[in-house]
Design a protein around this nucleic acid. Structure first.
Lengths: 163, 163
DNA sequence: CTTAAAGTGTAGCCGTTGCTACATGTTGGT
DNA sequence: ACCAACATGTAGCAACGGCTACACTTTAAG
């Protein structure tokens, strides 16, 4: 590390500005939250790809880059590039012109993601969100739900440990 | 590839693969959902900045780039660059060395975002997520909650229109 | 078999969001 | 008035995710 990391924390106690209504969390806590959200964002794509590939494999026995691309609404070139990233990260393998497959890690991730997705959708529906809306919203939400929250969802839905 | 229910554009119905296992949404629908999630992602940053700036303005009367940077856990250079984007998009103004301010549009956006944030947190808490977890999760989730879902949340929480 | 269509892969570009490093402006203490 | 500390701004770099354009392989049709 060069610098950059002074442990500044609550430094505003000394100042006493108007300070009226707003309750603000500590700098550190807030920064940490935002950081978490940002990093979640970076894995979200991989999760989407892995889940989709898993679905395709399950549904038709194979997952082709173009199928993936079409499902995700991106160009095939983009899909291929991201699939390369999946391979780099040890989640998938692929033989040229032979389709994409998931490694063990990839399969495990896909399973986790799928369960989480369903749980989120079910929760949304349970609190009154229309099913199609729930499905669409879950696509964006699911990547940001902590395990703690998932456990709460499960409890709320009256489920033990299973889906 | 299995086409489940709707026969949107070009699909392959000729194959009759093992199928069975998975139910997949139509290509078009799925692509649309992913696209939505992606675009939401692109506005998420702006929303975070605007909300934070609004909070800082409310709490201390001014919002300086470094404060914003520290709160978000990024370098001041990054914050300044993003604030430039806010200005480009007509959400904020700033005079050098004088801090950042929100335009009318920015203020309105901040208000909407703040309400949404609280609603999401409250819903999470209502279904049993611990408050601190709810607060952290909401930071990532809020950007992906549709108006439809928000309305459902409000109804579920037994609120009319207000927060 | 030959050829056209479709899938696959590569290269190069752009915009975004991070970062560090450096340069400049502001401000406060002495 | 000065200088040091800090805030601010700019520049350049890298990784990512998107795209189009082009090259190549496979597959399907004739």
């Amino acid at each position: 590390m060069t610098k950059t990391k002074d442990a500044t924390s609550a430094s505003e106690a000394s100042e006493s500005p108007p300070t009226s209504g707003a309750e603000m969390p500590s700098e550190a806590a807030q920064a940490h939250r935002f950081g978490k959200a940002r990093s979640a964002q970076s894995t979200a794509l991989l999760e989407d790809y892995v889940e989709l590939i898993s679905d395709l494999l399950g549904a038709s026995g194979e997952a082709r880059p173009t199928d993936v691309a079409r499902r995700l609404g991106v160009s095939h070139a983009t899909a291929i590039k991201t699939i390369s990233r999946l391979k780099r990260e040890g989640l998938a393998t692929s033989r040229p012109y032979r389709g994409v497959f998931l490694t063990e890690a990839g399969t495990a991730l896909a399973e986790r993601v799928r369960l989480r997705h369903r749980l989120v959708v079910d929760l949304l529906v349970a609190v009154g969100v229309p099913p199609d809306s729930a499905e669409a919203d879950a696509e964006g939400i699911e990547h940001h739900v902590s395990d703690t929250a998932l456990a709460a969802f499960r409890a709320f839905l009256g489920r033990g440990e299973n889906s």
